[in-house]
Design a protein around this nucleic acid. Sequence first.
RNA 1: GUGGGUGUAGCUCAGUUGGUCAGAGCGCCAGGUUGUGGCCCUGGAGGCCGAGGGUUCGAAGCCCUUCACUCACCCCA
Length: 422
Amino acid sequence: MLQAIKGMNDILPGEVALWQTIEETARAICEAYGYQEIRTPVLEKTELFARGVGESTDIVEKEMYSFVDRGGDNLSLRPEGTAGVVRALIEHKMHAADPEVRVYYIGPMYRRERPQKGRYRQFHQIGVEAFGIAAPEVDAELMAMLYQFLREIGLPDVVLDVNTLGDQSDRPRYLEALRAHFEQHRSELCEDCLRRIERAPLRLLDCKSERCHAVALAAPLVLDHLGPASREHFDGVRRALDRLQVPHRVNPRVVRGLDYYTRTVFEAVSTGLGSQNAICGGGRYDNLVEQLGGPALPAIGYAQGIERLVMLVADKLALRAPTAVALVPVASEQRAQALEIAALLRGRRIRCILDLAGRSVKAQLRRANRANAAFAVVLGEEEIRRGQVEIKPLVEGESAEQVAIASLVDRLTARCAERAAG
RNA sequence: GUGGGUGUAGCUCAGUUGGUCAGAGCGCCAGGUUGUGGCCCUGGAGGCCGAGGGUUCGAAGCCCUUCACUCACCCCA
């Protein structure tokens, strides 16, 4: 049997409503905060990700879908959204028109990892990026936006973990202090962490192995190694978060996996997702734009995984019931007229179904009921001869009525509106 | 890349030590009113028991191989 590619899922009609609700909520909130949607290609030059995400990250080293196209270019499916957005920003000199650029995107990303619960090879992210603003208040504003979003889709209990990684001037010193600490405890570390000491000492901090965890707890804190500028920035972020009443906690173990982060980093984690528990991750990346050939623009952003949101929200989000009309021609002689009425209703954007298979009235009503139709309109030979049809509600507590065919569309429109309002 | 688990009807799953074991519930279709849904009753369609090989008089159940799905490690959304 033909199957979808491993780790790539079909989102079937039954679950799409949930996706749409999440996406619409995200759009509305982003717009409210002054962000505009941007759409960039899913395919970019491999070099962009190598330089942007970081040569030595797992993502670039072993997870990208890369290939050489017929023209000889090295291309990759985007493993994340920030690099492409930064490329577009630079390419179109967006910062020249307005030094502050706030954008968001929604779309698929690709990473060739072993799939498991909450992790897929094609997954979808809602991402937000703010360029050109160095003030700590943007960091907080962004997190406030995230929090509002989580609240509105019904996840107010998600915990927001915040940390800082320092900037170029204090990070090297901190990394050295970390290396020194871990070197002293080599014998207690897992194999993976031993390899990380040189290359990515920060990563030891969030290792899940218990023994490493113990060593990490005793490790020097970033907060003690921040220069005055970074410290002031972090304090500013926290003050603003408090002011905006965004529930959060400082967690020194949040380090993030991508190379480009500086200063503020944060993530939102949730229980109930298995081991892939991060539903959102982000942070400041003040050097990336320049690093990719653009101006020295400070920036900050985050991305959330839609699949993971859908899993959490699946049983919580109330989906609006379809308000629909089912036209029921009693016999094939009434079908043409039913079609005509359906066209009028549909012209008014009223969801409308109509049996074209010649089913019995009983079968048509059964199907109308299952389709969640609010009203059935029975078109029978006798009534039509009298110039009338029956509007039959399919829910409790509403009365049926006979209406003149001429006023049917208006009457149905009104009753659908009543239901939508009530 | 490394481990564990699972593959029987569209879906969720039963199938005792290999011998009416090819089933149930839900869903789907139809009938129970010459033109009226939901509840209920009755009936029907639908499966080479993931695939290939082996053992056996006999395999959904045992052995081997393979594929797929899934969870976890790693990493991350």
